[in-house]
């Protein structure tokens, strides 16, 4: 029962992930980071874009692994 619930939550998150990603990648949010600020010598916007990207990949990896394990039909 609990597992089914977690599975459904994972699927909902997977569906929401691209929406979340689009929100972070598109204006107006992305414009908040275009200021002339640098962090460790690297411009903020570059750090922002690549961090968001990496974050999305990590989240997707985590969710896909969990869904894959929970998918009885595909596990052979």
């Amino acid at each position: 029962m609990e597992e089914a619930q977690r599975n459904r939550r994972d699927r909902d998150l997977t569906v929401l992930l691209p929406v979340f990603g689009a929100l972070l990648f598109l204006p107006p949010i992305v414009r908040l980071f275009t200021g002339p600020v640098t962090l460790f010598g690297i411009p903020l916007i570059v750090l922002y874009i690549f961090s968001v990207w990496a974050l999305l990949i990590l989240l997707c990896l985590r969710l896909a692994r969990r869904l894959h394990l929970a998918d009885p039909g595909e596990r052979r």
Binding site: R11, T14, V15, L17, P18, V19, G21, A22, F25, I45, V46, I49, W53, L56, I57, L59, C60
Partner: peptide, 20 residues
């Protein structure tokens, strides 16, 4: 500048949204 990233962020969004 960073405009080239848009060519790769679109596919990224499509693939992390593979489920639907």
């Amino acid at each position: 500048g960073l405009e080239f990233v848009a060519i790769y962020s679109g596919p990224t969004l499509v693939f992390i949204g593979w489920w639907w």
